[in-house]
Amino acid sequence: MLVFLIRRIAQSAIVVAIMSVLVFTGIFAIGNPIDVLISPEADELERAAAIARLGLDRPLHEQFFAFAGNALSGDLGISFVHGVPAVELVLERFPATLELALLAMIIAVLIGIPLGIWAGLRPDSPAGRIIMAGSILGFSLPTFWVGMLLIMAFAVSLGWLPASGRGETVDVFGIPFSFLTADGLKHMLLPALNLALFKVSLVIRLARAGTREVALQDYVRFARAKGLSPARIVGVHILKNIMIPVVTVLGLEFGSVIAFSVVTESVFAWPGMGKLLIDSILLLDRPVVVAYLLVTVLLFIVINLVVDVLYSLLDPRIRLGGAKA
């Protein structure tokens, strides 16, 4: 296990290094931030001063090494727009995105698994067909449009739920969270549902395919022949087996939920790091974009690691780190 972790972390470090070069050179090409930042009336002297202050007058490779050196000490530069360290800005927004993504995942599992198992046990029943049709629809619906429809239905027409913002938050260890207050949860519900939409379809498909396969296995017949109740057979024997692919895929998809929150956060004006990314791209705020990307890359690596560990816990046949069972 330890060997496995060390090897994985070393591999990840290489990926981060490559990504930071790519990200940096890529972002360098984004427009000319000076045009946005300095008012058109500013004179040449002011312009030059601003360029020097931001370090934009130095050659590309120098800028990169300065960037890499600072990055190693956790400094990814100062936001051109907000004037505070970019990493701080991203990390400050991170909890909002995280809680939204986690709630979306929970919704996806709570809705997707029961529906998927149902459809898998009775694939030819009307209910099974409707569930599958629904999942095709879920794959086809554009997220942002559904988000707008949700706002129209539940916020504008019915007035049940708020359309934007985080609502009331509670600080835990100095970090504000919405999910701990009733008002915050109300604000979270629509965006989380929106973010969950695609994953619900995915979980339904995985759970259905898994159930169909597992239900035919001899161990399920044997479980029936042992006189177990259907609830135990489905809830333990089938569920535990289909959870292996579901958890693996969902874990890997968690990164994409974080990325897709860019869309949902824009629709619902949720002040997370996705909204920050879009705003920063539109304002050409380079350091923030770079900081967002590097934080995301690190996040993905952590997620992949956690998934591998989880996978080995769920499936007794897998043992990490070469220690053969």
């Binding site: 296995q217 001899d218 161990y219 017949r221 044997f222 479980a223 022949a225 333990v236 024997h237 535990k240 087996n241 292996i244 769920l314 499936d315 007794p316 046949r317």
Partner: peptide
């Protein structure tokens, strides 16, 4: 059942 590889649930 016939196949002892398949009659026991692998994850329990």
């Amino acid at each position: 059942f016939q196949d002892p590889m398949m009659t026991l649930n692998p994850v329990l």
